[in-house]
Design a protein around this nucleic acid. Structure first.
Length: 263
DNA sequence: AAGTCCCACAACCGCTCCGCA
DNA sequence: ATGCGGAGCGGTTGTGGGACT
């Protein structure tokens, strides 16, 4: 009788986040089901994928949704239904899970109230939802999350946007190594100063119950030789490269999100 | 101060989709 | 054409913290 390995559930610890980030940074994503074992995590592949996609991966904007984003979500929900991944694709820095949660906890109620109000007062002018439902407006909303976004929207979100940016982790088709990490660390765009880094950490801790692992912690983790017993680094590296070449996924710095041209 | 309620959000579960052999 | 395995999606649940009584 084969004994199933114990799989942990529930909230992720700092150590687990560290391991997952370090592993993906070093080897990339090649197989979610196999990865946890090599990364030294007692988690299912699904759990790892979810944690990475919804929380740990770079360039996720967290925290308060701007008014523009709210209206975009409302409009897209109206036209697409509960296709959260499709909606998230129009808001590249937001995850489908975040959008889904935001809709269920706030926007749904608001839309219901607004609909009730507009139904009870037929002479009322266009609702805010309708005001923002034209395609032209949709384009404007989308541009709010692009590099050319307006100053106001940037300011509105800047305090939350850095939570994932502070990791300064970017993967590309070759899978970055330690050397590239050092370059990123030297880039003051990501780590302006020691005090700023602390401030970001503090802010993040206040914003959520969790935290993100700092670059320095990841670096020290990566520096640990043979961090996983029996790990065949060469094999994993090859798998990783095969995976990347297969999926042709790369980071688009211009648009600030991951691109998979096969999609 | 203690207990209860409510809300937000992280995470899980079950299902579908898709690519490959 | 079909079965299998991995990835992704959407609905739902669990939990912690703040608000309220």
């Amino acid at each position: 009788m084969v004994r199933q390995p114990y799989l942990k559930k529930g909230s992720w610890s700092r150590d687990e986040d560290q391991k997952l980030i370090a592993y993906i940074t070093r080897y990339g994503i090649w197989n979610w089901n196999e990865m946890p074992r090599f990364a030294g995590l007692q988690r299912s592949g699904k759990s790892c994928r979810l944690r990475w996609v919804n929380y740990l991966r770079p360039n996720i904007r967290r925290g308060n949704f701007s008014r523009e984003e709210e209206e975009t979500i409302i409009h897209l929900q109206k036209t697409l239904g509960n296709r959260w991944s499709a909606i998230a694709a129009r808001l590249p820095q937001r995850t489908d899970n975040d959008i889904k949660n935001y809709w269920n906890s706030r926007l749904k109620k608001r839309v219901i109230v607004e609909n009730n109000n507009s139904a009870s007062s037929p002479t009322e002018t266009k609702s805010s939802v309708e005001e923002n439902s034209s395609d032209a407006d949709l384009e404007n909303n989308n541009s709010a999350s692009s590099p050319t976004e307006t100053k106001s929207s940037v300011e509105e979100n800047s305090s939350d946007a850095d939570s994932s940016m502070m990791l300064g982790i970017f993967l590309d088709s070759d899978t970055r190594g330690m050397h590239d990490f050092a370059e990123i660390a030297a880039d003051t765009t990501f780590f302006p100063s020691g005090s700023d880094r602390v401030a970001v950490d503090d802010h993040y801790s206040m914003a959520t119950d969790n935290y993100l692992v700092s670059y320095w912690e990841i670096l020290s983790f990566l520096e640990q030789p043979q961090m996983i017993e029996g790990l065949d680094c060469e094999a994993i590296s090859q798998n990783s490269q095969q995976w990347h070449s297969h999926h042709q996924q790369y980071y688009d710095p211009l648009h600030d999100f991951w691109v998979n041209p096969l999609i």
